[in-house]
Nucleic acid binder design. Sequence first.
DNA 1: GATGAATGAGATTTCATTCAT
DNA 2: AATGAATGAAATCTCATTCAT
Lengths: 217, 217, 217, 217
Amino acid sequence: MSRRSPVASVPPVAPVVPLRERFRREVASAIAGSAEEVFAEQGLHSAHVGDIARRAGVAVGTLYNYYEDRDALLAALLRERGEELVARFEQAIASAAGKALKKQLGAFVDAYFDFFVAHRPYFKILLEGELTQLQDSYPRSAAIPSHYHQLIFRQLEGLFQRAVEARQLRVAHADLYPWLLLGMMRSLAVCDLRKHKTYEPSSGAQLVNVFLGGAAV
Amino acid sequence: MSRRSPVASVPPVAPVVPLRERFRREVASAIAGSAEEVFAEQGLHSAHVGDIARRAGVAVGTLYNYYEDRDALLAALLRERGEELVARFEQAIASAAGKALKKQLGAFVDAYFDFFVAHRPYFKILLEGELTQLQDSYPRSAAIPSHYHQLIFRQLEGLFQRAVEARQLRVAHADLYPWLLLGMMRSLAVCDLRKHKTYEPSSGAQLVNVFLGGAAV
Amino acid sequence: MSRRSPVASVPPVAPVVPLRERFRREVASAIAGSAEEVFAEQGLHSAHVGDIARRAGVAVGTLYNYYEDRDALLAALLRERGEELVARFEQAIASAAGKALKKQLGAFVDAYFDFFVAHRPYFKILLEGELTQLQDSYPRSAAIPSHYHQLIFRQLEGLFQRAVEARQLRVAHADLYPWLLLGMMRSLAVCDLRKHKTYEPSSGAQLVNVFLGGAAV
Amino acid sequence: MSRRSPVASVPPVAPVVPLRERFRREVASAIAGSAEEVFAEQGLHSAHVGDIARRAGVAVGTLYNYYEDRDALLAALLRERGEELVARFEQAIASAAGKALKKQLGAFVDAYFDFFVAHRPYFKILLEGELTQLQDSYPRSAAIPSHYHQLIFRQLEGLFQRAVEARQLRVAHADLYPWLLLGMMRSLAVCDLRKHKTYEPSSGAQLVNVFLGGAAV
DNA sequence: GATGAATGAGATTTCATTCAT
DNA sequence: AATGAATGAAATCTCATTCAT
């Protein structure tokens, strides 16, 4: 029998988002989307609020009805995608827990590049933000990329530590492993962003192969 | 009698730099030095001409007597150090030519990090410039980092190609090797610049070990 | 049968305000009240339409249904209270007509401060408006404070002129009397508004004493 | 005999202000002057930086080379004139110390109006600043008028207290005396600023007469 | 050749007012 | 009639570059 008894009269209250609110979200999302593109295309420092508004098809004032200022707009963007990315990683690591180390790393790398392929503009912003001095123009956003970088870094550290303890990885200079792996990952992402070579899953697999087994014959 | 004897004897070697000219170079060099520091400390977009001049101990106007504009100043900087860096690489590769692959890579990596340790500010600029959109603020400088990146990349490509042909490296996805190696190198540099861990030569050795032999036991 | 009997009896007095209209006035009045507070608290130039609407519990759009623009809102406010104030003065002067000069002035001063105590926010606005340049932001309101000031001033002038003619006041510089008296009154009001000392009727009496008899022993 | 002995050769070192510096002061002063006028004419809130610069005959950027921001410009103005005004008061009170009360008050009032006549625009600004909410637009300037007001107020309080102790003034409500006197003074100033009647010294004398002896016959 | 004040285009942000729903 | 999101003109401030001294 259906839970919605025909007699019962309280309409299934669920997601009745009021119309106004739906519009609001639509617009906020459109603005965020334009911002993501413009930030990625023009670079964090040449991305002007006017450009973002224009691309979103709204007036500047409208943009400011949704985001307190340019900084807040970037911060919102970085945070939303950052949360998503971290969640993917946690999921990937969890789902591969207990499996062979190669599987675990593979899951990690795949999670990274799946997200990358789906959100290239975000990655461009993120990678730029890693080294650029943002404190001046984006006081609140400045700390966010490194925040998420740390989260991811720690997950990787844990993974490597367990592998070292299980004698699956050599112990010498084990503290470098996260840096080396992430360095290679970043490099493939940059390779793709610079239009040298579109990323393919086999590249990720090869990355893991090299990391674990080396490139030598 | 004129000093310019018609017969002979413009001293062929010593390039007798006139005093005036020596001064010029002194000043130009002081300005470039300050620029390097300021660009590195403040980031490419927050480095103001005024700051650079102040640190060099000259007036802004003076700076403009030596460099056409901010872009030209950065370009000069990037070019000078870039030439130097490429030269080091050529030398390293040449000196290791014919030796074992590990030696060759070691020489390459060492050349990179020796230069890095000697010129951290330059690397900070270079790494920032790799991903930041410079076209707007620095139209002429924008292409320079990637120019030198390419030169280095090609040297590495050649090295790897020869190793592949000599069956020293696995052939599958060999085109990724330069990206992977440079990615790890960059990552260790960033690790140092971010004050996580000062670079030590053993790290470079470990990097080569992992690249060739893998991290797995 | 229709309720509107053809025969008679539209009650001749009570100006039967239709319900709809009564609502309108209610809302208009609520808005004006909020405006009075906000104008007083934030100052004429930092009082934003949005704040006023929010405090009144209506949307900005609603506010604009009742008042043509910000200027009109302020003007309405100034006019309404201004009329009231002038009426009080007329009444005070009329009721004291023929009495001793001291009584007359006492009535005048009391009328002023009674109104002040009942309407501090209005006075804050009024006093601010006396010297601030309003022409730009409030073209229509700008003239209103001085209009009522003039009305009051003239009443006082008349009062003084009669007293001078009756040889109750010294004639020299008699034209200054209204300025001097109003200046002292304003000053006590400001003293209260600035939270130095809450106004008490005895202060008004003392003011009259000083004005008529001087402060000297 | 002249102090500049023809023999002595150290040039009388005094005020050799370098040329550059003299120009700087000239410009700073021109800007401050324009600011004073514009602030007075347009009112504190409609005085735009652009207007000030234009009237001073410089570009906006120039203005910002001399004053950190609009607030700083106003603050400098208020402070400079404020210091001057307070000094005049101190001098006036000191020079009249020990004389009859009427002389003392006369000196005080004269000092006020002498300064007023010489600096009407400043007074307009000052009087406007007394009641306008400046905190938002001029965070640093906001406190300055009341600061100087306090200084002057205290001088007057002291003067009155001594007079009360010497039984020269009635003791009842003596705390109101500064408010009443300053209120009348302000009122005459406003009367002049509003173009009703240009201030004349006899008005000040009359003010003191009324304050001490009352207006009544 | 050195100096540093002047310049002004250009970027961000605010907020009174409008108007479709 | 009420709503509140959209609008965009206008204001402040920055800073690379110029140029008279």
